[in-house]
Each structure stands twice: as structure tokens, then as C-alpha cells.
Design a protein around this nucleic acid. Structure first.
Lengths: 184, 184
DNA sequence: GTCTATACGAAGATAGAC
DNA sequence: GTCTATCTTCGTATAGAC
């Protein structure tokens, strides 16, 4: 429930873009404004300071995560399948916002860190609900983390991870299925 | 085989410290020099530019990784046990250098990205050698990634990961053991 | 080897015109 | 709602003294 004006959204998109592709250091007001096609002054009309720009990004993520959790719960093939298949950042709006906030968290932005920790808590809870075993749920959450992490560090091509393309994920899901307790 | 002088090493330590604790943006020449207890001019005697400072860090990592791979191969409890137990950054000199370089990679430093990809390749190869199954090896590598990633984002306390302390890792290793093919 | 002084462009932010 | 001009501080780098 944050953005109304199109320019505001374009500015957040540009901010994400720079954080993802070139890191914190490149995500300057000048850079963001240019990437969004406005001047620095134009940006500062919508976001009065860099802190306000960051707040705008965090608010956007907050909205998107609520949707994501709902999607996981209602996924036809089950929560684990959905989570693993969507872990690797694939460039969806949600993925982009999430990766961008990750960069801020790694730059030690405390609020970003807290927000990411909160979301992870929710994900782990949903998985545990689905598999009924705490250790297995934790393992699956870690695999999800691993997929996400690798997708944000390695270049798509010549990656050392077999599973960054949706097609290859079946093998991984098959291995995971072997440790999920059967239920009656 | 890079550093000889103690000041040089202290500067690299300080550079790592800032990258890890406060991100790229805080890792300025001024900041690094101050953290190492020298002046900006002092730093620039040892590393003539910021690029040289980064090169120094990459060279340090290169040395440390060679040792790590050797440790994995010769670990008494096996490669998988060793890898999983040492994945979460625990603040060893190797961990610190590795996390610091990860920050550079996420800031889109290409050489850092390539170096990390190369190391991961080695690790995956060692795991596959140990477990004899590609999918299982990939899964274990992802869990290792997940442990590492979480250890660099979440605050030690109130973490959502059960396994960031060595004590809790047995449960995770037990689950992993269930999918490793038995050999004769 | 380490320091101070200085140059210069980049980054965040304000004021006011259109 | 967007722009230009301007201010201040920060970040990188050079020169030269100690």
C-alpha cells in the first residue's frame, strides 16, 4: 500500500536495479535518478532523502512478501515444491525487491536485516507445517537459502549450481522427497 | 604468499572488518586506515590505490582456500561432515576473508565473482567424490551455501536457523546421512 | 614507513525557478 | 512534479615533509 504515482515506482525499480546489478556503492541518488530518467531534484521530490528511498523499498517488499506467503500456502503441488522451485531469483518483481533488500541487509542496514529474518521465520513455519519434522524443515529452508544465495552471486552461465534453471530442479526435489516423513 | 609486513596485514584485516560489519559503502580508504591505526597516507604506501587493496584481499583468499580444500580432503570424519560443520561463518581468518570477498562479489566485482565460482567448483567436486551421487552432492553444496549465507545475514542471536552453532548440527547431518548412498 | 596538506570529483541535500 | 544551481561533506589520490 505504498506507491501511487508512476514516477515513484520507476524510482524504486531503478534503485533495485542498481542495488542488484552493481551493489550498494552504485546505488546513489544521482545514479537512481538517472536510471529512472529524472533529475536528482525530481527524485528528491518523491523521496526526501536516501533514508526515505530505502524506507520506500522496504515497504514495497513488505507488501510483496505477504502475497508470497499466501501463494506458498495455496500451492497445488505443495509448499516444499513451490518454495524450492521459486527460491532461485528468477527476476520476478518479488525476487528483485527481495535481492535488493538483501544488499541493504548485507550493508548492515538493521531494519532490512530484521525484516528478512521475520520473513524467513514465516517460511520455515510453513515448511514445518507441510513436512511435520523440524530437522527436515530446517534442511529444506537451508537448501532454499542456498538456491537463493547462489542465484544472486553466480553468473547465470557457467554456474556451478545445477538447479538454477527450473528444468533441473526435479532431481533435487526427488532427493528431498526421500527424507520427508510419510503421513497417513 | 602475499603479505610480509605486519602493517599490510593489519590493513587487510581492517578492510575485511569493515566489509563484513558495515558493507562496501563503509569500506573507504579513510575508514580502513583509521581501523588499522594508520593514516590515509600510510595505507597508500602499502596499497597504492583502492584497486590494489582489493587485489591484496583476493590474493589472501586465494592462499587460504588452497589450505581449506586440503583440510576437507583429509578430514577424519569425512568431507561432508567437515564441510557442513565449517560452512557457517564462525569468524576464523578464512571465514572472514571469504565473507569479505563475498561482499565485493555482490558489489559486482567481476574478479571476486569468478574466484568464488571457482572455489565452489572445487568444493562440489570434493563432495561428489565423497558421496558418489551428483544430485545428493548438489543438495549438500546448497545446504552448505545456505548455512554460509544465513551466517552472514542473520544476527547470531534470535536467528531462524537452528544450525549456526556447532552443537545443533548433528540433527542436520543425520538427515543428510539418510540420502547418501551406502557404498561397499 | 608514516604523516600532513592539498586537489578534485562524487554524493547527499537545500532553495528556488518553471 | 520536475528542473538547475548551489552548498557541504566525503572518497580517492598526489606531493612532499619527517
Amino acid at each position: 500500500m505504498a506507491s501511487i504515482t508512476p514516477t515513484r515506482d520507476r524510482l524504486l525499480d531503478a534503485f533495485e536495479e542498481l542495488l542488484i546489478e552493481h551493489g550498494e556503492r552504485a546505488a546513489t541518488l544521482e545514479g537512481v535518478a538517472a536510471a529512472a530518467g529524472v533529475s536528482k531534484g525530481g527524485l528528491l521530490y518523491h523521496f526526501g532523502s536516501k533514508a526515505a528511498l530505502i524506507d520506500g523499498l522496504l515497504a514495497r517488499l513488505s507488501d510483496l512478501v505477504a502475497e508470497d506467503i499466501a501463494d506458498i500456502r495455496s500451492a497445488p503441488a505443495g509448499a516444499v515444491d513451490f518454495l524450492i522451485r521459486t527460491s532461485a531469483s528468477a527476476g520476478t518483481p518479488f525476487d528483485r525487491t527481495f535481492v535488493a533488500v538483501t544488499r541493504l541487509a548485507q550493508g548492515s542496514h538493521q531494519q532490512a536485516k530484521d525484516m528478512l529474518a521475520g520473513f524467513r521465520r514465516d517460511w520455515v513455519a510453513v515448511i514445518e507445517e507441510a513436512v511435520g519434522d523440524r530437522d527436515v524443515a530446517q534442511m529444506i529452508a537451508l537448501i532454499s537459502d542456498g538456491l537463493f544465495y547462489e542465484s544472486t552471486v553466480s553468473d547465470a552461465k557457467d554456474s556451478t549450481v545445477d538447479y538454477l534453471s527450473p528444468a533441473g530442479l526435479d532431481g533435487l526435489l526427488a532427493v528431498i522427497a526421500r527424507v520427508i516423513p510419510k503421513r497417513d
